[in-house]
Simulated assay, not measured.
Amino acid sequence: MHMSAGFPANLAPRVLSIVRVVSAYLFVLHGSAKHLKIPFIEAMASVSPTSLSGIAGWLELVGGFLLLLGLFTRPVAFVLSGLMAFAYFIAHAPATPFFPLMNGGESAVLFCFIFLYFSVAGGGSWSIDALRSRR
């Protein structure tokens, strides 16, 4: 089966949007578990809204929702990338600095670098940002 050379390149902006939506959905769940108790996670049930974890939860909830929509993708993703770097070094790295698998920080590292990529690449063709730029 022969595919044209442009076929994968034509899909890239759409796949970028799909990765953004899935990543944002997974990220929003962290904030909604902390503040909306959906899903209910015992360890997150007592997070104070003004604690460090609570403030991170607001950024996860609001920033994740903006990413889900693809609205202000680049600046929001940049802030969330920094949040995840901070979360890794504050909450995970002190346990075993160079082994995210051992300190539970692999999702923080992945989110950090995925969001860093979105801060450069944008939200893809299926985003409010793309819709706004067409007008």
Rank of each mutant, 00 (worst) to 15 (best):
A9R: 13
G105L: 09
A95S: 14
S4T: 10
F86T: 03
L67V: 04
V76P: 00
R134Q: 15
P100Y: 09
F98K: 13
V62P: 08
K34F: 05
M84A: 08
M84K: 04
S53W: 02
G70S: 06
A43K: 15
G104K: 10
R14G: 13
L67A: 03
N103A: 15
P49K: 02
Y117Q: 07
S4A: 11
T50G: 09
P75S: 07
A77S: 06
G124R: 01
A77L: 02
L110Y: 13
L131H: 14
M102F: 14
F89K: 13
I128T: 10
L68E: 04
F40R: 06
E60L: 02
F115W: 01
S32A: 10
V109K: 13
K37F: 14
L67P: 03
G6V: 15
A95D: 13
L61G: 04
F89N: 14
R14T: 12
G54R: 00
N103D: 15
P39R: 15
K34A: 04
L29K: 10
L11D: 11
S81G: 09
P49N: 02
W58M: 04
D129M: 07
A85Q: 08
N10K: 12
G124I: 03
V47L: 00
K34Y: 06
S46W: 04
L11Y: 11
F113V: 08
N103H: 15
A45C: 08
A93L: 09
Y25N: 12
G122C: 01
A91I: 10
